[in-house]
């Protein structure tokens, strides 16, 4: 377990540490009680379900952080004259548009992944296979395209 004092100071996740500490205690207690490994879709295993949910909440929280950064980026653009004969100003404006879009995509990914994690924890009827399918779908959604960076390995 990571000592709370040792990790770097982080924003946005609140009482994440305590929640996890409790979670881990629950999980250990469960294993000692012979409840087995559990996994999503086994509604009697409370620990593993809340593990999914907590991770899901944290990842969705990151989407909020991305949005806040977008706000800062947007405020930074105010007062900038685009065009008007300075090429760098036009280039900066294009650059900004590309990053605004990219951050939308990152926030979207956080939302999808966070939502998937939460659903894995909350949907009592989801089987392991069903959870796997959830993440496969997310994976396919975010595959590489060849345009700028190229289809890397």
């Amino acid at each position: 377990m990571i000592g709370a004092g040792r990790a770097r100071e982080k924003s946005g996740v609140g009482s994440f540490e305590e929640e996890w500490a409790q979670l881990k205690r629950d999980a250990v207690a469960m294993r000692l009680a012979g409840a087995g490994q559990g996994g999503a879709g086994t509604p009697d295993v409370k620990g593993s379900r809340s593990a999914w949910t907590t991770a899901g909440n944290a990842v969705e929280g990151l989407a909020g952080d991305v949005r806040r950064a977008q706000g800062a980026l947007d405020r930074g653009q105010q007062g900038l004259v685009t065009g008007g004969g300075v090429e760098s100003a036009a280039a900066q404006s294009d650059l900004y548009q590309s990053w605004k879009t990219y951050l939308d995509m990152v926030a979207g990914r956080c939302g999808r992944l966070g939502g998937g994690l939460e659903r894995a924890g909350s949907d009592l009827f989801l089987t392991d296979k069903g959870v796997l399918g959830l993440f496969d779908a997310i994976k396919t959604h975010d595959e590489d395209t060849p345009a700028v960076g190229g289809q890397g390995r």
Binding site: D94, S98, D142, D144, G149, G152
Partner: peptide
């Protein structure tokens, strides 16, 4: 300008 996809590749 940024890559247009979310996969951060070696390239």
């Amino acid at each position: 300008k940024v890559d247009d996809d979310l996969t951060v590749s070696d390239g």
